[in-house]
Nucleic acid binder design. Structure first.
Length: 771
DNA sequence: ATTTTACAAATTTTT
DNA sequence: TTTGTAAAAT
């Protein structure tokens, strides 16, 4: 594709934004206005037309998936060898990459661990316990939120102590020791060689501020900077971008104030509202033509968002057809809501021949997915849930990962605590407490304390336990040696086996245990896949370090794969940002659910909820359905619900309000007479108890005790060479070889799309395909 | 040190 | 309803 070709595909406003390559540029991009297209072509244009070196372009996106897709599109214009040099990714992943290079400046090891929310909570919990504070007053969650807020505002523990206002705020909240906890938390993370998500930003900022030569280096490298979803940047991100752009001034931010929905994690909508004040001679472009949605949807969304006070003026319009009115439907209960949605999807799928991937069900809270899942499953409608408990957060997966983490960075205290006695080694809480005391006293990590027999002795740990600890240390050390030679897959496989975890899981024959075992297999598969991919790439890195780096910053939105074709998407509205679907169901439009209870206190919060609804509505291309239930299960109790105020805020001419008659004689399934209702409820019980009692697998393989696994059971193990088979995830393939026998029988399968895989037949959910 | 039992708490959204 | 934590028992 040459210059003329891609410029021709743009409308005047888009084209102007693409061609304005110098100086500060702000693009206000209404929903569905072709923002990604502008960003893509702008970068391609820089490289292709202005001969800018791809190494000098930094592009910060909202998800890594978005970055990957954009890179592919750019590659098609400028060629893959050039495109691969682009710096593209989320703030967190790009800055983690920089921090790995520069970590010694800040006193961190370059293989620092990235703590997720769970690790963070555990550290805080430990500190609260050690200082014997009342955790009714110092709620770990609120402490974590508070610390996160400090970091996003770039406040250090020292600055905290110097600020009377902050100290008073916490004293007023009966938490006068907040500053001490904050300091202890930072200290502990530092000693563990670990950064949390906020640290990735904060430390990048500190790095650039304290070391002018580092700043100069990156200023000089990133001569063209682009920031997507600028309305969702926080203060730290704002300052980092500003610092980096300070030399060349070629900064282009793209965003939509109407879609700012991340204030709760520190995003500051003022960043976009004040951009013109912050930079000189800003060129502003407004993309107001919506290419995505029908006139009805655009009109409805406009009428809704006009209720917000804080916004930049813009007029989103569309050339598309008027389309169907938006349906509002009231149901009796949350289960009923699920049935309605499932029935509508089924009907539309059958009568209009819409594939299942055309549908999305969006909700405010993850908890709402349950009712939807039940209903979809009952109708055998395939679906995929995004978010919720992700694969990498599952307990058993984190256990294995903790061994990996400890191998890479033995100072990682949370990983240490997690696995030092798992599988059981006779090292219990008492020992751990003693270790903590001595580590704190000496100002070293627990690991370092374990390496020093003198310290163990002085901690009052008895001889047998000392030996156990030393055995553990030796074991981890041996893994470390292995990482010097082996690739991620070799090391991971060895660790999983020799740590005893595999044995631990395989001994458990309960359905939960089997599911856990499968998840570990799945994890090792993904290590294998990663290793192989890295080996194929020219300068790929197949080490375990690289794998863990990849895993740490994977986001829920990043994980979609090919096998999501033909599936209905279920996700929170937050996760739906940036996506679009022909038909969208927004469920649970009830007061104190959406808008959420927490947001009803202040106008600013309420406006954010309204923007959230705006985002939800504008995901729809052709049709939108809004549902609300009269009753809903919450906290295990049935509660009454009022329709959301947002429903009244949409201009009526776009609406089609169904006021269904709830007598048992009308609609076939919409409302259920009480007898059937209770019968259904009792019928539900046994199935629910069949579910793994641990958190049900939300993302990858969901264990479905009923249909699938039993249905094809005979077909699983007796495949033969040359046969055509179908795998849930990998698609179609041909069996090329068999290995092992009995329960360990494996098949080597050449898949049409993903190449050769070796699968344990016991677990691979294969289907025979008749040629 | 580990297992069992009982009881409380939880639901906003995520990198 | 489910999940996690604290106390009590082995």
């Amino acid at each position: 594709m040459n210059v003329e070709d891609y410029l021709k595909q743009l409308n005047p406003a888009q084209r102007a934004a693409v061609e304005a390559v110098k100086g500060p540029v702000m693009v206000i991009a209404g929903a569905g206005s072709g923002k990604t297209r502008v960003l893509t072509y702008r970068i391609a244009h820089l490289i292709d037309y202005h001969q800018v070196d791809a190494f000098q372009v930094l592009s910060l996106t909202f998800t890594n998936k978005a970055a990957r897709e954009m890179k592919e599109r750019i590659a098609r214009i400028v060629g893959p060898s050039e495109a691969k040099n682009l710096w593209m990714g989320t703030f967190h992943s790009v800055f983690a990459r920089i921090l790995r290079v520069e970590s010694d400046r800040l006193g961190y090891p370059s293989n620092f661990t990235i703590y997720d929310t769970e690790d963070q909570a555990k550290v805080i919990n430990n500190i609260i316990k050690e200082q014997s504070l009342d955790k009714e007053i110092y709620k770990p969650k609120s402490v974590a939120r508070r610390i996160s807020a400090f970091k996003n505002a770039l406040i250090t523990p020292e600055e905290y102590q110097r600020s009377p206002e902050l100290r008073e705020q916490d004293a007023a909240a009966r938490m006068p020791l907040m500053g001490e906890i904050f300091a202890a938390y930072n200290e502990r993370c530092f000693r563990s060689g670990a950064m949390d998500f906020d640290d990735l930003l904060l430390n990048t900022y500190m790095l650039l501020r304290k070391f002018p030569d580092v700043l100069a280096k990156y200023q000089d490298r990133f001569r063209y900077i682009m920031v997507d979803e600028y309305q969702d940047t926080n203060h730290a991100q704002y300052l980092i971008v500003k610092a980096l752009a300070n030399r060349y001034g070629n900064i282009c931010v793209v965003g939509d104030d109407a879609q700012s929905i991340y204030a709760f994690r520190g995003a500051n909508i003022k960043n976009i509202l004040n951009f013109q004040r912050d930079y000189e001679d800003v060129q502003v472009f407004k993309l107001e033509q919506n290419y995505r949605s029908s006139k009805t949807i655009v009109g409805a969304a406009n009428s809704l968002i006009s209720k917000n006070k804080d916004q930049l003026h813009k007029e989103v319009w569309t050339d598309n057809d008027a389309g169907e009115r938006i349906t509002i439907h009231k149901t009796v209960s949350d289960n009923d809501e699920g049935n309605y949605v499932a029935r509508m999807i089924f009907e539309k799928h059958m009568t209009n021949h819409l594939p299942y991937e055309s549908f999305a069900i969006l909700y405010r809270t993850n908890a709402q997915s349950r009712a939807m899942e039940d209903a979809l499953r009952r109708k055998n409608i395939p679906y995929r849930i995004y978010g919720g408990l992700s694969f990498y957060q599952r307990k058993e997966v984190k256990d294995v990962l903790a061994y990996f983490r400890l191998t890479i960075n033995p100072k990682d205290e949370e990983a240490f605590r997690r696995v030092v006695n798992y599988p059981k080694r006779g090292i219990g809480d008492t020992t751990l407490d003693k270790l903590t005391v001595v580590a704190n006293r000496e100002g070293v990590s627990i690991w370092e304390a374990c390496q020093n027999p003198m310290l163990l002795e002085s901690a009052g740990i008895n001889r047998p336990t000392q030996t156990k600890l030393q055995d553990f240390v030796t074991k981890i050390e041996s893994y470390r040696v292995l990482t010097q030679k082996g690739d991620a897959f070799e090391v991971a496989g060895h660790i999983a086996k020799s740590s005893g975890l595999i044995r631990e899981f395989s001994e458990d024959k309960t359905p939960e245990g089997v599911s856990r075992y499968e998840n570990i297999e799945e994890l090792l598969n993904s290590v294998k896949e990663f290793t192989e991919n890295q080996k194929e790439i020219e300068d790929g890195n197949p080490s375990l370090d690289a794998f863990m780096e990849d895993v740490a910053l994977i986001t829920d939105a990043d994980k979609g794969t090919e096998d999501d074709k033909h599936k209905v998407s279920l996700m929170t509205i937050h996760l739906a940002k940036g996506l679009e679907f022909p038909v969208v169901f927004i469920v649970g439009l009830e007061e104190s659910l959406f808008p959420s209870m927490m947001s009803m206190g202040s106008r600013a919060d309420l406006e954010e909820e309204r923007r959230l609804f705006y985002v939800a509505l504008t995901r729809a291309e052709k049709e939108a359905y809004l549902t609300h239930a009269q009753m809903r299960y919450r906290w295990g109790k049935l509660i009454d619900c009022e329709p959301s105020r947002f429903l009244e805020e949409i201009d009526e001419r776009y609406l089609n309000i169904l006021t269904p008659d709830f007598s048992p004689f009308t609609g076939p399934d919409t409302s259920l007479p009480s007898r059937r209702r209770s019968a259904e409820n009792t019928a539900r019980k046994p199935r629910t108890s069949l579910r793994p009692s641990s958190a049900p697998p939300k993302n990858l393989k969901r264990v479905r005790p009923t249909q699938e696994s039993e249905g094809n059971f005979e077909a699983l193990t007796n495949v033969e060479v040359g046969e055509r088979v179908k795998h849930q995830r990998f698609g179609m393939g041909t069996v090329s070889d068999l290995e092992g026998s009995g329960p360990n029988k494996k098949a080597i399968i050449e898949f049409d799309n993903v190449g050769e895989k070796k699968l344990l037949l016991k677990f691979a959910k294969l289907e025979r395909v008749n040629a």
